[in-house]
Design a protein around this nucleic acid. Structure first.
Lengths: 339, 339
DNA sequence: TTGAAAGCGCTAACAT
DNA sequence: ATGTTAGCGCTTTCAA
């Protein structure tokens, strides 16, 4: 049985006492700083081991206001969305490789929660932040940009604010999906959108409209539905679409979760895909092939978005003067059998 | 345009200066402490507003070694697994309702990473920890239990250690799945397991074996495959199974990700489910109905697991002497058409 | 009701 | 090569 005190956090002072040196010396040993006599070093290291000493990150952060705290904040809108989970994995891989820990905040598309988390992150003295803002006029995030805290936005930019940004060609991705549907001969193509205020929703709608125009298909505003980017609202919106006197013959869904919601509704009604209604989703999933039927989808390189964002952030932390980068990645239409 | 300094973090001292009082008074106002003259309070509140003051959580934590830091740690094995994402949502809802922020660490089933994160969490002076240990002899987590830090384990317990724990009846859940298969007449039932050292994998294997026994089906160890609880390894293991001279007529998959991996392989080979091979998965997903075919699965109440764990943890933080609770939740077999 | 001051654990400038 | 000390922002005891 391990003793009660084996894991009690020892402080610098205790280590110094045990080793019979000053705390400054201990600090030097820990930070591999400059010149320490090998014998002294050995004594100190022995004490560190004996006490199972681990530096207190909190004290370190407080002290080093302007030095590195080795802490990055991540603010994401919806952890239920596998897209963000992949982004997060990309961030995490780069962060841990560079010795940064992550404090992850999920605001569930709730601006109040977003504000709370942003407050917490700031008062935790993080080194930098990767965020997907609630919308492009997100004053809280804009405030952070202006405060000078290193920040990279992912998936969603900010209006009139120059900030490092990593996202995909949303308009072009949506265009490719709807273009594909139109070429296949579908005429009444619906769009179930995520929250209207999200820039990516707007861009995707633009791609949808442009593609219809280019195919000479008239825009029917009844075929455009706005939801909250979640699964539940999408099931309802899809029902509304299917209940129309003149229902769509194809649906373009604005993200992962919306796709899954629409599929649920279609299956509950026993409709055949693509015969009764075709579907293309924005966001691919690695299990898209196992859906019924295998889903045609616009793939975003989510992991890479996260990776790039983390790289940019670390660069920015190390060089706050480098010019702002907007990194726009390509999407890829994965054609399977739902269209 | 917002000015550069609007978001600079002001300190207690600056507020005190502006209000013409001492920092102690400002602290009293902020903490709604005791007796402050209403006029003084008003002055201070005005200064707080003017400077957009937010207390520095780092300093607070350092000072209040033994008081609350309003920070909880969460350590999970695999954020790609939707099960843990749901657990996380449950934790988060309770945590934020009780004014706790979360520092979330995903160790990707990697013990080195787990150790790193555990070190970080401890040195961040968190109030408590919710963790799913790598395995039941996880010395790092056991050490934390012994150190007296409030902790609740989820999904996986620890051997010979009394600790608050929330999980499901893994054996019974697996039993119900395999029993269902046997009753349907399947004879060669395979099991694709997650990592062997995870307690839940072992329990599920036990349920699998017990069910076969009870149906008089001989255990064929070739039909049991051990993977790493991830999607990729499962595709390979499923291939091995299907390549056998005498392949299984049904597969029981040990978790979410394994199920998705097995489905991928089956679909790539153009096999029919359940005619060529049936499948039941541990872990339901809300989109199981949209899979091909709708998946029969053992549902764990993941969100509730998280919720309960967070409740237990907050209780424990407030009363370290309350006796240890092991909360075992029920699973439910969702029968759809993959069996 | 308010203020002065100690101290949480650490780093870094300065002194020896 | 090593030690002393100030101070990061905060809470809290003690004193006024």
């Amino acid at each position: 049985m391990v003793g009660e005190n084996d894991y009690k956090n020892a402080s610098l002072t205790e280590v110094a006492e045990m080793a019979g040196v000053s705390i400054a010396t201990v600090s030097r040993v820990i930070n591999k700083n400059s010149n320490v006599n090998p014998e002294t070093r050995a004594k100190v290291e022995k004490a560190i081991k004996a006490l199972n000493y681990r530096p207190n990150r909190v004290a370190k952060r407080l002290r080093n206001k302007n030095a590195s705290s080795n802490l990055l904040g991540v603010l994401i809108p919806d952890i239920q969305n596998p897209f963000y989970v992949d982004v997060l994995r990309g961030i995490e891989d780069i962060a841990s490789a560079n010795n940064y820990a992550l404090i992850m905040c999920n605001f569930s598309q709730d601006e109040k929660k977003e504000e709370m988390y942003l407050d917490i992150l700031q008062s935790e003295s993080i080194d930098g932040l990767i965020a997907a803002p609630a919308h492009e006029n997100d004053q809280k995030v804009i405030g952070i940009v202006n405060s000078g805290l290193p920040i990279v936005c992912v998936d969603r930019g900010l209006a009139n604010v120059d900030v490092d940004l990593v996202l995909v060609e949303n308009r072009a991705g949506a265009y490719s999906a709807v273009d594909h549907l139109a070429k296949k001969g579908y005429k009444r193509i619906a769009y179930i959108s995520g929250m209207k205020q999200i820039p990516s929703s707007q861009q995707r709608e633009k791609g949808y409209i442009d593609a219809l125009r280019d195919h000479g298909i008239e825009i029917d505003s009844d075929l455009i539905k706005y939801g909250d980017s979640r699964h539940e609202s999408s099931t309802k919106l899809c029902e509304e679409l299917l209940d129309m006197p003149n229902p769509p013959d194809a649906i373009f869904t604005g993200n992962n979760l919306i796709t899954l919601g629409a599929l649920e509704t279609i299956h509950k009604r026993g409709l055949k895909i693509p015969e009764d209604v075709a579907i293309v989703g924005f966001d691919d999933m690695y299990w898209s092939i196992s859906l019924n039927p295998p889903l045609t989808a616009v793939r975003q390189p989510a992991y890479e978005i996260g990776k790039r964002a983390a790289e940019l952030l670390i660069q920015r932390i190390n060089d706050s003067s480098r010019s702002v980068v907007n990194m726009i990645l390509k999407t890829e239409l994965m054609v399977r059998s739902s269209t």
